[in-house]
């Protein structure tokens, strides 16, 4: 973590929570939690509402689909922390590791549904090039994705284009696979609230 305040500038209650998390999970406190809990009225609390709504709110996309979108956006941004974190949640939600690793390693050949593939392709371009055009959207619509589903996918993309940038700018520590597995269980059970 590049800023000392994000590592150890939290109030007493949050520090106690972190000690509890370390004791119960036997894992380091996820650095994203340190970010979200630091002066949470400024960013963490309002952002959590966006993330929870995007990832767990009503949508025709499954939780697994949305977690895969999050991991995919993170992968395009080369954000290791978020890629691993959300690939773990997606794999757990789908009960299918292979589906997630296939989609992340080669979107075009992965055995996933065409509407999801077309959506991920568009989110990838938006993340990489910072913009997309009407033709990109027409291609997604033509794959059978509804307008509402596109909007839902853009909300996921927004959330993780924000969080991923912060993970890399502040240099979140990337723990081992066990920590991400513990985190994934928590996020599947509780969401992002």
């Amino acid at each position: 973590m590049r800023l000392a305040i994000l590592d150890s500038g939290h109030g007493f209650g949050t520090k106690a929570l972190f000690a509890f998390i370390r004791a119960v999970s036997r894992q380091p406190v996820p650095e994203v939690l340190k970010l979200i809990r630091y002066r949470s009225d400024f960013f963490g609390a309002p952002m959590q509402k966006v993330v929870h709504e995007a990832m767990r709110g009503p949508s025709a996309w499954s939780v697994g689909d949305r977690e895969l979108m999050a991991a995919f956006v993170a992968k395009v941004n080369a954000c290791e922390f978020c890629t691993k974190a959300h690939a773990a949640v997606a794999a757990m939600a789908y009960h299918d590791d292979a589906r997630v690793s296939a989609a992340l390693s080669d979107l075009e050949t992965a055995a996933i549904e065409e509407p999801l593939r077309a959506t991920l392709r568009m989110l990838g371009k938006l993340t990489r090039e910072h913009t997309v055009g009407p033709d990109d959207m027409s291609a997604v619509l033509a794959a059978g994705v509804s307008r509402k589903q596109i909007e839902d996918s853009l909300a996921v993309c927004y959330a993780f284009n924000t969080i991923g940038r912060l993970a890399d700018a502040f240099e979140f520590f990337v723990p081992g696979p066990k920590a991400f597995e513990v985190g994934a269980k928590f996020l599947l059970a509780r969401g992002y609230r």
Binding site: F42, F43, M122, L126, T127, H130, T131, V132, G133, P134, D135, D136, M137, S138, L141, R147, I150, E151, L154, A155, C157, Y158, A159, N161, T162, I163, R165, L166, A169, F170
Partner: peptide
């Protein structure tokens, strides 16, 4: 300011995508 920069860029991307979706529909 780093938080603002991240939100700003994600917002511009989102707005561009919604505009593209509008003209496509």
């Amino acid at each position: 300011i780093v938080v603002c920069a991240a939100i700003g860029q994600a917002t511009r991307q989102y707005d561009a995508a919604v505009a593209a979706l509008e003209s496509a529909t």
